[in-house]
Write a protein that binds this DNA or RNA. Sequence first.
RNA 1: GGGCUUGUGGCGGAACUGGUAGACGCGACGGACUUAAAAUCCGUUGGCCGCAAGGCCGUGUGGGUUCGAGUCCCACCAUGCCCACCA
Length: 838
Amino acid sequence: MKTTDARTFQEIDARQQKRWQEMNAFRAERLPGKPKFYCLDMFPYPSGDGLHVGHPESYTATDIISRYKRMKGFEVLHPMGWDAFGLPAENYAISTGVHPRVTTEKNCATFKRQIKALGFSYDWEREVTTIDPGYYKWTQWIFLQLFNKGLAYEAEVPINWCPKCKTGLANEEVYQGKCDRCETPIEKKSLKQWMLRITAYADRLLEDLEGIDWPHSTRLMQENWIGRSEGAEVDFELPSIGEKLRIFTTRPDTLYGATYMVLAPEHPFVVKITAPEKKSEVETYVAAAANKSDLERTELAKDKTGVFTGAYAVNPVNGEKIPVWVADYVLITYGTGAIMAVPAHDDRDHEFATKFGLKMIEVLKPPADWKGEGAFCGDGTSINSGVITGLPTPEAKKRIIAWLKEKGIGEPKVNYKLRDWVFARQRYWGEPFPLVHCDKCGVVPVPESELPVRLPEVENYEPTGTGESPLAVIESWVNTKCPKCGGPAKRETNTMPQWAGSCWYYLRYMDPKNDKAFVAGDIEKAWMPVDLYIGGAEHAVLHLLYARFWHKVLFDLGHVSTKEPFRKMVHQGMILSYAYRDSKGAYRNYKELEIAEDGTAKTSDGEIIKPVVEKMSKSKKNVINPDEVLERYGADPFRLYEMFMGPLEDTKPWNIRGIEGVNRFLKRAYAWGLERHSALTDHEVSGQDLILRHQTIEKVGADIEALKFNTAISALMIYLNRLTEQKETARADFETFLALLHPFAPHITDELWEVSGGQGTLMKQAWPAADKAVIASRELEIPVQVNGKIKEKLHVKETTTQDEIKRLALEAAAPHTAGKTIVKTIVVPGRLVSIVIK
RNA sequence: GGGCUUGUGGCGGAACUGGUAGACGCGACGGACUUAAAAUCCGUUGGCCGCAAGGCCGUGUGGGUUCGAGUCCCACCAUGCCCACCA
């Protein structure tokens, strides 16, 4: 190679990115005229730390797919944007006074610069930002559609309150009783909140999971989160107050085993039924339960507590008088807030009954192979249970429900764990609600013509802490006219949660500048659904459930044409890295250490420390900065390494040494291309070389389709190894290699393409076609096993008949079978021959 | 406690619907080039025995099904993630 011709990878990155921009290479047509492919990344929250190496992992994957699909003749929609509302910018504003918009815009610019440096083929004309009034106008508009449909309502509800963030949180934002963002224990606080009736869509959100190509685990998580359970509601008489207590159970077949009842501490009947002599004890218990945070309630879960109210209920199936207790293991938020307790057949009831010495009655016979202890909770056969005695559980359930209904004491009922979505935050940096409160007219939506309701400038970002947002103190903004009656009215001062903007951004990309509609109908029909969506698994139930909900609402209103937004969903695995912790337990920055061959490190004071593979975080000082990798290697090695590390969906450790391999490969490819491009031969290669070309075409294409980028790269390495051995390079091999490598390493391949006289970008060239006939002409090595051990190997054409292979195998194995009886011979076409002897 | 995921060389990882375990790469070792180093190139590289031919062992552990198991079944151990008193 003449080194004078060579450019550094960084020079190549800059040159090719400039060329792509000049030829407007990534622009997607407004309406696709060819088969379409909508390839979507989860848009990032632009944090102040900039990109970390986890972001480009999924972006590289979608970029490979996008470039590949374009080469396969698809019109590809591949956009990027910013999920830019959010707490960090607001918290930063509180401490520094810098407007969140300023911080956010700066962060967006950094993210954009870093993403562009990697050469991803995004159509930047379609960039969207959730904080842009032209965008949140439509977020507000969609909210109004929900409002008008009765899916948004105000309710005074006990909400999860983070005392540090001074805001309400959705259940989904509470992690182990703590605030998802700041880890402060969550308290309960009663506030008037905007709620979205996601529960109205519970069944459809559940059912429609069937039709989409999503990871099994994500579907399961959504199923569990929705938590549908079928059972019955049953009324129990409370003779002391002459009322009925309604309970929910999924096991109505165990009704005869109900020996006591439990009310949640917040249940309205608690006060009514408590016997005078139990009053103070019950009140004390209820007050204590009210003061427990979610965290405490969770931590104390193992040890059940409760008190007897002194009242009794009547079991409707057998007339038994059973005691009514109050205990906080029963939740007011689920079912009816009251249960019948069947200690013989429920673990929790069993534990409670054991602790308080309550009666247990067995009404289920376990299957013969059951050898558990304590309560039997599975399916068995009903015993001592009146009309259902002798029936297996599923049948017993049906029968008893029918019987209860007939007698007027119960009815079938479906319950969900899913709660309505608390859709309001007492914060500044979010979308304002397009609503005003009028004394005369109540809650009135802002007319569509007045959207967006813009976020006003404030001086103080500090939440009021009283449950009102910082917006509440801006009187000039709050005081307005009622759109209905023209009288004085006040604006809603809560803002929408961060999830709002991300619920529909994938729709806006299709038609980002439209100011008449969030997306034009014909454009929506042409592009939807999203064909491939890649993003983190941490959104399995949050964003991905909310977005499906909004999409279904829009579908019902006729605004979108598909009932599900994302046809195929894939989660990229997390990238971990080596963290070094010294003997004092302090994390050391890997850059300040002397790293040995085996990965162990030596500190400046001579201490040897072993690395631990951990999630990247600032506090662990093991964050890999993409800028540094780019500076040292360039964009293509970075992209290639992220894909070569392992399967996209796996968690895998970043090892800076690993990049050396792909860097060498690209350097060899570049050197080979520079050396050969001017002396390509036009005559066709044959034999193994031709077979290898077509095998590689087939393998790389199939692997890209299956998102198995690591093995696609290894096939390309094998191909290049052979090409560099050849004395002459056929034009067809040169072009094939560049085309196949292009989606992975677009800069270097386009550089070689350009240098060799090619026009435009390889991305606009056709993907090479694999010739199956050529592949079929290859020679196979067929191992011959004798009693499971490989003894010989046959070399045959793929077209050789089974009989012939069998004959050859028996012949070859003759020395090993001499004097023995051949019991059977198994020929697996294209694989092996197995001979069993005795 | 429940659900799901994953266990393969020194390391990252390959292995189609049960069919040659360890592709490809890193690292290591040996060699070439060089005054030298870097870079590059060539060779070796799962373990054990053997001069070799070859043999034995080997995919977390213990069983099982099968001509054949990394792959299927049962039990156990370990890992990571999610949910966590939802009646």
